[in-house]
Design a protein around this nucleic acid. Structure first.
Lengths: 344, 344
DNA sequence: ATTAGCACTCTTCGTAATCGAGTGCTAACA
DNA sequence: TGTTAGCACTCGATTACGAAGAGTGCTAAT
C-alpha cells in the first residue's frame, strides 16, 4: 500500500506524463502547487515508487515514466470519475437528434467518441446469431434480377440481389418464397443454413420443378455474412501521438485494426461493465504500447455490444472512463427503450 | 520530342527508380543490358533530359529522379499495357465466385485491388440519385417498433428502424404505407423529399388522424442518407512505402481519406475511361506526392462508378494501369449482365 | 559521337566534444 | 527524524569534423 504522499506524487507524475509524453523530473513535480516539497524530497519518494515498480526510468539518469503497474494503480485507486456536463450534453444531443436506428447510433457513437477523446474508437455491434428471422421478402427488379431481404426480430436487415437463373419461372420463385416464409420465419439466424438444407430442401424437391437450380442460389442468399458488425472511428488519431512517430508501430496497429476476426475476438466479452487493459495486459504484440478500455451496452434483453477506446498507455484515463461510462449507458438506454416495451 | 535513345534511357531510369526509390546514377543505367553505352554517354543524355525537365537532381552531385513531367511522359508515351494472365485469373475467379451483389462486388474489388498492387484502392459506388423507388415495405417488429425498407430499381436497399410514436394506431400506419406506395413508387430518389412534403402530406392530412405525428417520422425514414457509397481498401499499404516514413505526410493523407465529401468530389467524374493524375496535378496538398489513377465502371445503362488507386508518384504504372483496366471492365460486365436483359 | 579520366560536390557515417537535464548521495538543518 | 541544499556523476541529445563514397560535369583523347 502507498502512503498518502506517495499516492499524491504518483498521481501528479502520471498526470504530468500524460500531458507531456516525456519523462518527468523531480523539479517539475516539486513546482506543482499541490506539492509542497523540495525536489530532493520528491526524488526520495520517486525512488521508493520505483522500488515498488510503479515508476521506471528510461536510462540511469533520466526522469521517471509510469510503468504498466503504475497506470494500473492509478486507474484502480487514484481516479475518481467525473463527467463534464458539457460532454454529456454533446452525447445526448448527438444521439437523440436522430431517428432510432441501431447501425446509425453505433456508427455515430464511434465517431463521436473518437472526436471527443482524440483516440481510436471501436464499436462491436451485438451478435445477431440468436436473433430470429422475422420476415423474408423477395422483390423482383427486372425479369432477370431480384433482391431478397431478410429481417430479424431485432430489426437487422440483410439483403442480397441476384440474377434469376434462366429457366426458373416466376411461379417457382413464388412457391419457394412461400416455403421459406412458412419454414424459416421464427428460426434463429444461426440455424438458418441447417433448416434450409433439411426441411426446406425436402419440401422444394417435392413441389418445385427447378429445385436444384434454385436451391443452389438460396444457400448463398439465405445467409448472414457477418453476425457482428465492427465500426472503427478516428484511426488517424493514433498518428498524432508522439510515441507513435515510428511508422512500423503504426503499421502493426493498423494491420490489426483491419483484421476483423481478431478485433472481434479481442472485443467480444461476456462480462458486463467497464474493463481496462494496459499495455501487455492485452496479450497482443501489436498493441503492447496501447491501452484498451472497453465497456458494454445492451440492446434489448440479452444482446451485448462492446464499445472500446484504443489509445497510448499514456491515456487520459479519467476523461475516457467517464465518457465511456456515460456513452454506453446512453446507448443502452436509447437502444433498449425502443424495444423493451414489448417484452412484457 | 525525344530521340529513341533519350526515351529508352528515361524509361530505364524511371523503371529503376520505381524499384528502388533512390536517385539513379549513370553507372547503374549503363550496366543494364538493354543499354550499350558508357556511363559518360548516359550522363550526357541525362543532362539533356534534365534540361527538358523530365529528370531532377536532389542535390548538385546526386543521381537523377523523375520529375512529375517525367512520369507524365512515361505514362503517355512509354508504357505499353500488358496484363498478366495470372492476375486476370485471380480477378475473374474472385469476382465470379460469388453471388452477384453490387455492394459485395465493390468491396471485394477494392480489397482485391489493394492486395494485388500494394497500394490503396478507393471505389466510389454509382450515384443512386437517379434510381427510382421500386418498393416500400413496413415491417412491425413489436407493438412499439417497426422497420421501414426502401428498395430502388437498381437493387439498392435502405432500411431504418424506428419507434412507433405512442398514439399511432396500426391502421394509421397501414394507411400511410398505402399512400406511400401509391405516390412514391417509381419516383426518383432525389425527388422523394419533395413529393413527400407536397402530395403525400396533403393526402395524409385528409385521411389520417395522427398525421402530424407520423409525418414527422416519415421525413427521417424516407430518405437516403448517402447517395453514393465509398469503399477504401489497403490504406495500410501507404505505410509501407519508404517515401512516407514521415508520419506527418501519412496523417494528411489519412485525414483526407476519412473525409468522405472530399473523396467523393475528387473521384466523381463525368468522363469515361482511365485517367492518371500525378503529384501536383491532383491540386490537393495532401496528396501532392501521390499519383491517383482512376477508372470508371458502369452499372446498368447510365450509372457510373469510379475505381481508383492511390500510391506514390513512384508507382508501378504499367501494372496498375492494366490491372485497373481489366478490373473495371470485369466489374462493368458483371454488374451489367445481371441487369441489362431487361432493358429492351 | 563516344568514352576515359579527373576534379569537384554533396550526402552519409562514425567519432569525439560539449551541454544539460536529472539522479543519487551526503551532510547540514529544523 | 524528516527535509533540504549541494555536488559529483550519468547519459541522451546536439554539434562539429573528417573520411568515405556515390555521382556529376568537363576536358581531352579515341
Amino acid at each position: 500500500m502507498l502512503t498518502e504522499r506517495e499516492s499524491l506524487i504518483l498521481q501528479t507524475i502520471i498526470d504530468h506524463f500524460i500531458d507531456t509524453a516525456r519523462p518527468v523530473g523531480s523539479r517539475a513535480i516539486s513546482k506543482k502547487k499541490q506539492i509542497n516539497l523540495s525536489a530532493a524530497t520528491v526524488r526520495n519518494v520517486m525512488a521508493d515508487l520505483e522500488e515498488k515498480e510503479l515508476l521506471e526510468k528510461t536510462h540511469s539518469s533520466s526522469g521517471r515514466i509510469p510503468s504498466e503497474r503504475g497506470y494500473r494503480y492509478y486507474v484502480d485507486h487514484v481516479i475518481s470519475p467525473s463527467i463534464k456536463q458539457k460532454e454529456l450534453n454533446i452525447i445526448q444531443n448527438t444521439l437523440n437528434d436522430n431517428i432510432i436506428e441501431m447501425e446509425q447510433i453505433v456508427q455515430l457513437s464511434a465517431e463521436l467518441l473518437s472526436q471527443l477523446t482524440n483516440y481510436t474508437a471501436i464499436i462491436l455491434g451485438p451478435n445477431v446469431d440468436e436473433a430470429k428471422l422475422k420476415d423474408i421478402q423477395l422483390i423482383t427488379l427486372t425479369s432477370q434480377t431480384a433482391v431478397a431481404i431478410l429481417i430479424t426480430d431485432t430489426g437487422h436487415v440483410e439483403h442480397k440481389s441476384f440474377t434469376v437463373p434462366t429457366g426458373v419461372s416466376v411461379t417457382d420463385l413464388e412457391k419457394t418464397v412461400n416455403i421459406l416464409k412458412d419454414r424459416l420465419i421464427g428460426v434463429p439466424i444461426m440455424q438458418l443454413s441447417l433448416k434450409l438444407e433439411t426441411e426446406v430442401y425436402a419440401l422444394m424437391k417435392k413441389h418445385i420443378k427447378e429445385h436444384e437450380l434454385i436451391f443452389e442460389y438460396l444457400q448463398a442468399v439465405i445467409s448472414y455474412d457477418d453476425s457482428v458488425k465492427l465500426y472503427v472511428g478516428g484511426q488517424t488519431n493514433i498518428l498524432m501521438q508522439p510515441e507513435f512517430r515510428d511508422v512500423k508501430k503504426v503499421y502493426d496497429v493498423f494491420t490489426m485494426l483491419e483484421n476483423e476476426a481478431e478485433m472481434i475476438k479481442l472485443l467480444t466479452t461476456e462480462t458486463d461493465g467497464l474493463h481496462i487493459s494496459i499495455g501487455n495486459e492485452n496479450n497482443i504484440e501489436a498493441i503492447k504500447d496501447f491501452s484498451l478500455i472497453t465497456s458494454t451496452f445492451r440492446l434489448g434483453v440479452d444482446q451485448l455490444g462492446t464499445i472500446a477506446l484504443l489509445g497510448p498507455t499514456r491515456m487520459k484515463y479519467r476523461k475516457v472512463i467517464t465518457l465511456l461510462h456515460a456513452l454506453s449507458r446512453e446507448m443502452s438506454e436509447l437502444l433498449d427503450v425502443s424495444r423493451q416495451h414489448d417484452l412484457k
